[in-house]
């Protein structure tokens, strides 16, 4: 953490390109520690691109280029001396579609810890992590069962547990509920609220109601005329959803967009 303030991570003058195409322009966004920040906006507004920039997932995309800074512990994570793998350990990610490994529930959680050289009691860690992900009670008698046998909502909570097992500080969530039914979605949202006591969460979501329900802060992105993603407005979720300042935010969240 940036120990002297409440910020977990901060994007400064962030510009992201895919080849010649500018996908994100001049984003300045400060993420508060132990809070849930939602990034919302129409398709193509660059919100997932920005999310992936927070743990250097964009490194995997050919021809992608990042300008500006992502400050984490007062250090730009794009500096040449930074280990991207270490960054991704501290800043975990949960994806749209639950993607558990085709292994047992237990192994899914233990795997990350093991390759990180975890030396403590693995059974305790698995239990603790599954409890934190609000999954323990449902799976404790079937830890050897294949993770693929779980329901979609359970699989997603398992993926969250897997992310938690390596003790990250920040969890990035990219549309984590889009493949889930409403009840499973609400369970994930409750879980996010629990987790936010110990973790910083950034969530990208198409579901505005979810952003309104589940987040503390909201950033609204849209596409500029040249199709570059820009951040229009950032504020407390209460403010964004009751009295947005920018007409574009108003139009989007009241459904007048497009």
């Amino acid at each position: 953490m940036n120990e002297n303030n409440h910020y977990a991570i901060e994007a400064r003058n962030l510009n992201i390109y895919y080849g010649n195409f500018q996908a994100v322009r001049d984003v300045n966004l400060t993420i508060q520690r132990n809070k849930i920040t939602a990034i919302i906006g129409p398709s193509g507004c660059g919100k997932s691109t920005v999310l992936r920039a927070f743990n250097r997932m964009n490194d995997f995309i050919l021809n992608s280029r990042v300008e500006g800074e992502i400050l984490y512990h007062n250090k730009n994570i794009y500096d040449p001396d930074v280990d991207a793998v270490q960054i991704r350990r501290m800043i975990g990610m949960v994806f749209q579609k639950p993607n558990p490994f085709p292994k047992s529930i237990y192994e899914n959680v233990a795997w990350g810890a093991r390759i990180n050289g975890f030396r403590g009691n693995m059974d305790d860690l698995v239990e603790e992590t599954l409890r934190a992900a609000a999954l323990w009670d449902e799976v404790k008698d079937n830890l050897k069962k294949s993770a693929l046998a779980l329901s979609g909502g359970q699989q997603q909570r398992l993926c969250i547990a897997r992310a938690l097992a390596v003790k990250p500080e920040i969890i990035l969530m990219d549309e984590p509920c889009s493949a889930l039914d409403p009840i499973a979605t609400l369970k994930i949202e409750d879980l996010m609220r629990e987790l936010s006591q110990n973790y910083t969460i950034i969530i990208v979501t198409h579901n505005m109601q979810q952003a309104a329900r589940a987040s503390d802060f909201t950033a609204f992105f849209t596409m500029a005329e040249d199709r570059a993603g820009v951040m229009v407005e950032y504020g407390t979720t209460n403010q964004i959803f009751t009295r947005p300042r920018d007409q574009r935010t108003e139009d989007y969240i009241t459904g007048r967009f497009g």
């Binding site: 505005m208 109601q209 309104a212 959803f241 009751t242 009295r243 947005p244 935010t249 108003e250 969240i253 009241t254 459904g255």
Partner: peptide, 9 residues
């Protein structure tokens, strides 16, 4: 309809 912002107000 889950109104937001101006609609909700």
């Amino acid at each position: 309809q889950q109104p937001m912002a101006r609609d909700l107000r």
